[in-house]
Amino acid sequence: MWQWFYKLGSPRHFYDMTTAFLPWLYGITFFLLIVGLVWGLGFAPPDYQMGDNYRIIYIHVPSASIAIGGYVMMACMAAMHMIWKIKMADIVAKVTAPVGGMFCALCLFSGSFWGKPTWGTYWIWDARITSTLILLFIYVGVAALRSAYDSESSGAKAASVLTLVGVVNLPIIRYSVDWWNTLHQSASNLSLRVEGTNPPEIWIPAFFMGFALFGIFLLAVILRSRNEILVREKRTQWVQDLLDRDVQEGLQRA
C-alpha cells in the first residue's frame, strides 16, 4: 500500500499507472453520468414547492462539493510539494487550479439560474454565495500567480503558499449558512425513514451525479497531469521513447 502510494509520487509511475486505470475511469464515469442524468432529469419526482426547477440540484450540489474538495486536494498537494519536494504533487496542484475553478464557476452559474425562479434574483451578496465567489477568485489567482513567474520552481513555490493561505476560506464557505442567517439554505437532511426530509427518490440520483462529476474531475486532472509530465520530463529517455512510439503508431488518443 505504502509502496504503491510512494510510486505515485514518481511521474513515470504515475503515467504508467494512469494508462492502465484510465479506461476503467472513463467507463465508470460515463455509466454513472448517464444513469444520473436520466434518473435526475426524467424519473425523480418533482419537488412539491419548486416543481421541476429543483432538478438543477443534480449539478449544483456536486459541483459545489468538487469546488471545495478539489481545493482541499490542491492544498494537500501544495503542502506535500513544499514539505517533501515531491515533483508529482506540484504537477497535480498546477493542473487542479483551472479544473477546480471551472467547477466552482459551474456551481455559481447553476446556483444563479436556480436562484432567479426561486429567490427572484440571479445574484445576491449572501454569505455563502460571496464566499464561493471568493473561492473562484482564489482558484484564478493561484493559476495566474504561477503563470506570472518565468521559472517553474519559483512559480510553484508562490502558488503553493497562496493555495495554503486560501484554505482559510473553506471553513467560511462550509459554515457560512450556520454563522450568518442570509438567504442560502443550510444542508438538507437525508434519510430513508424520517418524514419531512427529502425522499430517497430525489437524493439517490444525486449520489450518481455526485460520483459522476467526481469522475469527470479526476479524469480532467489525470489527463492534464499526463500532459504536464510529458512537458516537464521531456528530456528523459522514457518520455522520448514514449513520444517516439506514440508518433510512430499515429496514436492521438489521450
Partner: peptide, 8 residues
C-alpha cells in the same frame, strides 16, 4: 420542465 425550461 414544468415551465422552468430556460433555467434548467
Amino acid at each position: 420542465m414544468g415551465g422552468y425550461a430556460f433555467y434548467v
